[in-house]
Amino acid sequence: MFELFNPKWRIPFIGISRVTLVVSAVAMVVALVALFKPGLDFALDFTGGTVVELQFQSETNAEAVQSVLEEAGYSGTQVQSFGSTRDILIRLRPDHDQVGVDPAEAAASTENSIAQRVNAGERVHQLLASKGMPATVKRNESVGPQIGKELAEDGVVGIVFVLAGIMIYVAFRYEWRFGIAALAGEVHDTVLTAGFIALVGMEFDLQALAALLTVAGYSINDKIVIFDRIREMFRTTSKMTPAETIDAACSDTLSRTVITGVTTIMALTVMYFLGGETLRGFSLVLIVGILIGTYSSVLFASPLLLHLGVTKQDLMPKMRDETELARRP
């Protein structure tokens, strides 16, 4: 049997946690500050605006495109190379919709607004073509500010409900201290991951949101497995102190914790390198999030249980529970 960790090892997690709880607290402060300033770089999915991805017929640099746009009145656009030397990504703000619109035409087009609506992306494309920079449109997305705001609100409401639901379920199935610890772990992992996104200045788009939700799902799964073992240990052993019990449970599940983390990160690393531009950010957020989640399961959420004062008596099953457990396959 090939073992990653010697099963006889008892690692003093609770002892180490004196340090890691402080580390987590500091990291949380840093993450919260980062979320406040510089803050998340919300993509057009949330802010509204236009993104055009153009593939030019010849090599082009971002500065040349930027200067053409500035000249035409598009101030403060973001232009960046994307992938190859011919691919350029241009981000326009919602108010850029009005740039380059002939006022007379705009007034005349009230009757049939949809048919006549030309979005800012198309206008930029035509502008560049007229300045001798022909390109094909690979992607052109424009989102109204209202839609973006609603999506952001939906996202926040979704996360809040997920967190509350998890806490209630865990408190009901286990005990209220477990509910609090699970919630704290969840918040810890999501905030740190979001803080990471803010710190590296990565764009926060739909995929980043999906990644954040995935981290939340993974993180709760990871914690429940360890909590389950802690509960079991409390119920079956009688001579250990709560601190020793939590140490034993974490040590026992350590190889599972590490193996699950390693395999998932392995798959994500492949995705990071081979998944292309669109998957790169997504997989990076997941890798970081899973590292944080694995760390916090063992060194943040579980020690927190002890500090919340969990004891053996809290977890002894009531009679009804026992018969129910026996019936389970």
């Binding site: 609603e150 999506l151 939906d154 996202g155 409401v157 979704g158 409900f161 997920v162 639901g165 998890i166 379920y169 865990v170 199935r173 699970a182 739909l206 949101l209 999906a210 939700l213 995935t214 939340a216 799902g217 709760i220 799964n221 990871d222 429940i224 497995v225 909590f227 389950d228 073992r229 457990l325 389970r328």
Partner: peptide, 28 residues
Amino acid sequence: TSILDANLTTLLAGIALFSFGSGPIRGF
């Protein structure tokens, strides 16, 4: 029991996301 609890908790989160999310979040 560990698998059941871990999965049910995540499932619960998924159902909450489905009910309160829109478009892309629902797809997830």
